[in-house]
C-alpha cells in the first residue's frame, strides 16, 4: 500500500491488515501514556478544501499519538483563495517537508489525481473527495461492527454473513459508497434504502440489494442500520417534498426505534447527527447507538493507516 484513496480497490488482505493494526492501536488509548514513538520525525499535512472539524481533528490526534508532526493547511486562509492550483499548493507543502498528505476536497477524484499525476512523492490519504469516497470512515465503521460483535477476539475476523442496511441520501454520500465496497469485500450483505430520488444512477450494478421499504427491512432485524446524514449543503434541487416527509419514510423515528429496541441491531451514524430529521433523540442516545464509539475508533483506524503507509518502505 502506497496511498489510501478508495475502498473500491482495497484488497481484502490490506483491509484486514488495517483493522488488525487498529486493534492494537486502540490499546494505546487505554494507557496512561497515550503516545508511540513510531512516526517520529515524519510530517503529516492536513489539507482540507472543505470544512471538517471531526475528520481533521481525528487525523491530527492519530498523527500526534504516533509522534508525527502535523501541519494544518486551512484552505480559506491560503493562496488557494487567490487562485493557486492544487498542483502548486501540494508542491509548496512538500517543499516545506510533508511525508503524507491527508486531503479532503470538494471534487470527486481529487485524491486520485494527486496520487497519480506524479506531483508529489508523499503518501496520499483521501479524507473525502466530493461524492466519491471516504475510505477511513468506512474502515472505522467496519472496525466498530467487528468490535461490537467479536469484542476482544475480533483480530483476524471479517464481517462474513452480517446484514447491514444503509439508509438515506445514497446519491450524495461518499460514506455510503466507501461502505458498500468495503462491506462487500469483507463478506457482509448490504441493503440500501432511501428516497428513490436519492439513489444514484447505476446503483443496480453495485453489489447491493435495494429496498425502499425501511419498515420491512427493520422487521428482518439486520445486524446494523447506518443512518446517513441528510446533506442539505449538497442538495441544489428538491429531492424530497419536505423534511417531515423524509422523516416519515426513512428517518429512524421513535416508533421505528421501539421496534428494534433491545434487539441486536446496531444503530450507526457517521455524524454529525440531525436529531429529529434522520434519527430521533431516543435512538441517538440509545445503548445500541455506536456514534461515539465510531469517533473513538476513528482515531485508532487512522493511526493504523498512517503507520502502515508511513512506517515502512512501501510494499504492494
Amino acid at each position: 500500500m502506497r496511498h489510501l484513496l478508495a475502498t473500491r480497490n482495497l484488497s481484502y488482505d490490506n483491509a484486514m491488515a488495517i483493522l488488525d493494526t487498529a486493534q492494537e492501536m486502540a490499546t494505546v488509548s487505554d494507557r496512561s501514556i497515550k503516545k508511540l514513538p513510531t512516526l517520529r520525525g515524519q510530517t503529516v499535512v492536513n489539507l482540507f478544501f472543505e470544512d471538517s472539524t471531526r475528520t481533521r481533528t481525528s487525523f491530527e490526534a492519530a498523527a500526534k499519538r504516533l509522534s508525527a508532526d502535523v501541519l494544518n493547511f486551512a484552505v480559506k486562509t491560503s493562496s488557494v483563495s487567490k487562485g493557486e492550483s492544487l498542483k502548486d499548493t501540494v508542491q509548496t507543502l512538500e517543499a516545506i517537508g510533508g511525508d503524507a498528505i491527508v486531503m479532503r476536497h470538494w471534487a470527486s477524484g481529487a485524491a486520485q489525481q494527486l496520487a497519480n499525476f506524479g506531483w508529489s512523492s508523499s503518501a496520499v490519504i483521501n479524507a473525502g473527495d466530493g461524492t466519491h469516497e471516504h475510505p477511513t470512515q468506512a474502515l472505522l465503521d467496519a472496525f466498530t461492527l467487528r468490535d461490537r460483535i467479536h469484542g476482544q477476539h475480533a483480530s483476524g475476523k471479517d464481517l462474513e454473513g452480517l446484514h447491514i442496511v444503509v439508509v438515506g441520501d445514497i446519491l450524495h454520500s461518499r460514506v455510503a459508497r466507501s461502505n458498500v465496497w468495503l462491506l462487500h469485500t469483507l463478506g457482509a450483505k448490504v441493503t440500501l434504502s432511501g428516497p428513490p430520488t436519492l439513489m444514484p444512477v447505476g446503483v443496480t450494478t453495485w453489489p447491493v440489494e435495494i429496498n425502499y421499504d425501511l419498515d420491512a427491512l427493520l422487521a428482518e432485524q439486520p445486524d446494523a442500520i447506518m443512518m446517513l446524514r441528510v446533506q442539505a449543503e449538497r442538495m441544489s434541487g428538491d429531492f424530497f417534498p419536505s423534511a417531515a416527509e423524509y422523516t416519515r419514510g426513512w428517518g429512524l423515528t421513535n416508533d421505528r426505534y421501539k421496534r428494534i429496541e433491545g434487539c441486536n441491531t446496531l444503530i450507526m451514524h457517521p455524524g454529525p447527527m440531525n436529531r429529529g430529521l434522520e434519527i430521533s433523540a431516543a435512538a441517538a442516545d440509545s445503548a445500541q447507538n455506536t456514534a461515539l464509539e465510531q469517533v473513538a475508533n476513528g482515531v485508532s483506524v487512522r493511526m493504523a493507516v498512517l503507520y502502515l503507509l508511513l512506517a515502512g518502505q512501501p510494499g504492494q
Binding site: E24, T27, L36, T38, Y307, L308, L309, A311, Q313, G315
Partner: peptide, 21 residues
C-alpha cells in the same frame, strides 16, 4: 509485550502488523 511500534529499523522494511500487548 509487543515491540513492533518501537523498533528503530521501521523505515528499512515493509511495515508489519503489530502483535498484541
Amino acid at each position: 509485550l509487543d515491540i513492533t511500534l518501537y523498533r528503530d529499523d521501521l523505515a528499512r522494511a515493509e511495515s508489519r502488523i503489530p502483535a498484541t500487548t
